[in-house]
């Protein structure tokens, strides 16, 4: 598999040379393969947002390089705008960036900037709206008349419509109700499966990350603490708790069961998996009728 993003000794310092100097990212090197679903976790202030903003050239790294498809994105600083179409970035609370008269035009903003026109533009907008579960009837409404959840979807659709090679989502489910989180997350997974694009998901919810990610980037105090397959990361619960993070609740429960001598597999990450593991156990002991 070829790699789409490669970070080489990336570093960033805020307010260099002032009393407010703060190192946000420290010597991060990693490679992300095409089509991977990457989870990004870390305590507040661990540098994950800064790291994400360097991926699409919104911030220029103080040290090191970001390679997209093998080329340094800052090779031609004048063409940095093109990188932003390839690495789509959805910020936290993206609904605050809506501005157009209709939802349709707002979703089209990014794609239009990219140079799409006519039918191609129309298709990109409608596909993006479909991926995020926006009903076609909403497209002609003003974005300010939508509900909170719908605004969020419209904003995400605006980035998806640019059809980026890499989609970065910074806590897309923050502030949504449980049902909304659930639906949005499954739509992102569907997008990933159908488009085969690379997705990076920043989240504070270990449950969400455990469910969708292939591999996980763990950030701690600006440094890359771990970059391993999901199961491996959540097997190292003690290490995670040192970084101020947790393993999913269900993983904890299953580990406790194992310690008490029950024959359940290690590294259970989701409730569904746990269900599948526990059912035969109950049947064997004849406690299920």
């Amino acid at each position: 598999m070829n790699c789409v993003l490669e970070l080489k000794n990336l570093g960033f310092v805020y307010g260099k040379g002032t009393p407010f100097e703060k190192r946000a990212v420290d010597n991060v090197s990693l490679t992300i393969k095409r089509g991977e679903f990457i989870g990004v976790i870390g305590h507040t202030g661990s540098g994950k947002s800064t790291l994400m903003q360097m991926l699409n050239g919104l911030m220029r790294p103080g040290e090191g390089q970001v390679l997209l498809d093998g080329r340094d994105i800052w090779e031609q600083p004048k063409k940095i705008r093109e990188v932003r179409f390839k690495v789509g970035m959805v910020f936290q609370y993206p609904e605050y960036q809506l501005f157009e008269e209709t939802v349709y035009r707002d979703i089209a903003f990014g794609a239009k900037n990219k140079g799409l026109e006519g039918d191609a533009l129309d298709k990109a907008v409608r596909d993006a709206a479909d991926f995020t579960g926006l009903k076609p009837a909403l497209l002609d409404k003003s974005p300010f008349d939508l509900s909170g959840g719908e605004k969020r979807r419209a904003a995400i659709a605006g980035v998806i419509a640019m059809n980026p090679e890499v989609l970065v989502l910074d806590e897309p489910t923050a502030g949504l109700d449980p049902m909304g989180r659930e639906v949005l997350l499954s739509q992102i997974t569907r997008y990933h499966k159908e488009c085969h694009n690379t997705v990076l998901l920043v989240s504070h919810s270990m449950e969400d990350i455990a469910r969708v990610a292939d591999r996980i980037i763990v950030m701690n105090k600006g440094k890359l603490a771990m970059f391993e397959p999901t199961k491996e990361v959540f097997r190292r619960g003690d290490e995670l708790s040192r970084y101020g993070l947790k393993v999913p609740q269900i993983t904890n429960i299953m580990q406790a069961l194992r310690r008490r001598g029950f024959d359940v597999p290690e590294g259970v990450l989701t409730v569904d998996e746990a269900f599948d593991a526990l059912l035969p156990l109950l049947q064997k002991e004849g406690k299920l009728w």
Binding site: N56, F85, F109, M162
Partner: peptide, 16 residues
Amino acid sequence: EETDKIMQAQKARGAD
């Protein structure tokens, strides 16, 4: 701060 955030978000959508 808000201006900064919105600018970043629109730049990410290719605003020139």
